[in-house]
Design a binder for these strands. Structure first.
Lengths: 213, 213
DNA sequence: GTCTATAGTCCGATAGAC
DNA sequence: GTCTATCGGACTATAGAC
């Protein structure tokens, strides 16, 4: 083991692949382009990862491990639900902001036709859903927990969170919005609001009134 | 014009492409596979669409036109905001349910490296954002309108809506949920709740209490 | 571990017959 | 409008030298 090296060839390949897969898509990006960016030869991909598909799986493995770790860092314990949720959203937003390419690849490369990848993702997602169910939702009072339908709200909240990063170039283009620290701080809080008030509770009398005439 | 034919070759190509792009991804799917499914020859793609890229653009054009039309059908007029939102969500959910492949292709093929497609999508999204701003939000009372930050809530709500359809195979796998008419009816209402109560208003005193001990 | 060279396949586009 | 045949290039994977 040579711990002195800046980055191993394996790590450089993985990072180049993340960046290029995010920008061009898994199928559109050739190994030649990845290894050129990483400064190695094509044969190294198959030596270190076995195949292009396994390289993608290694990328997704890294992403889902981090997502799982973040959930485990915030959900167990006796803190109030609101604090858990707000803390979780802040950290997950920071993580997605700093690892947008990783998230983009791990999310958008779902629909493609590689059974190994689809099964792998389903298994990792199921594990993370388990953390939400047993560590976060189990601590809620009954009347609030009954508001939550995991098969509806789970993907919805996840989509609300992730879609910002997936379409960020369009957002910058359309809204002329500077995406700085303060934007992401309030972004995380707005999403937490959507869970706290949009999923857990309702106050119809405030929103059914007619518009001002 | 031969209006008697079941479907034109052009339409059959487009429909095969939607299905295959959704399943395998734009880059992973060859023209040969599309034309085989459509029962025509490769040359027909370039004859009718000009190129593979223009074929993708034609698909996205169809999707965004429909999205625009649905917004225009629900947002203008004096109906209460809640009714506009609930009616819109019901129709958009039905549309996405019946055109999942079209939506999947039109959404997920963003990040790739084709400048013409990215510009095209940005322009269509901007047009639809304009409908929301001028026809839906303009009718809200001031104190509610100030709660909405389009650059945050727009992509978030869109992501909450669409992500269900993008990850539907995983949902079926993980939650063992039958996705029938009644599921989608309540799905649309839950999402409307997230907008009405999660975006427009808040009621913190209900969600800050400690869990039951 | 890392390389070069190459095998074998598939790609998008188009020329030209009908 | 629709076809067949084909061009030039890019792809993944691997064999084999070092």
């Amino acid at each position: 083991m040579n711990a002195r090296e800046e980055k191993s060839a394996k790590e450089r390949i993985l990072q180049s692949a993340v960046e290029l897969f995010a920008r061009k898509g898994y199928a559109a990006c050739g190994l030649r382009e990845i290894v050129a960016a990483a400064g190695v030869s094509v044969a190294m991909v198959n030596y270190h990862f076995g195949s292009k598909e396994s390289l993608l799986q290694a990328i997704m493995d890294r992403f889902f491990s981090r997502i799982h770790d973040i959930a485990m860092a915030h959900f167990p314990g006796d803190a109030p639900f609101e604090l858990k949720i707000r803390g979780y959203f802040r950290e997950i937003v920071a993580f997605l902001r700093n690892n947008t390419d990783l998230a983009r690849v791990s999310f958008t490369e779902l629909p493609h036709d590689i059974p190994g990848i689809v099964d792998f993702k389903a298994e990792r997602v199921m594990k993370i859903v388990g953390v939400f169910a047993s560590e976060l939702l189990a601590g809620l009072p009954e009347h609030l927990r009954r508001r939550i339908r995991p098969e509806v709200h789970g993907p919805a909240v996840m989509g609300a969170l992730v879609s910002h990063f997936l379409v960020r170039p369009v957002i910058e283009n359309v809204f002329d919005q500077e995406l700085d620290d303060s934007f992401y701080e309030s972004f995380a809080d707005e999403l937490a609001d959507m869970v706290l008030y949009g999923v857990l509770h309702s106050r119809p009398e405030d929103t059914t009134q007619r518009k001002e005439s």
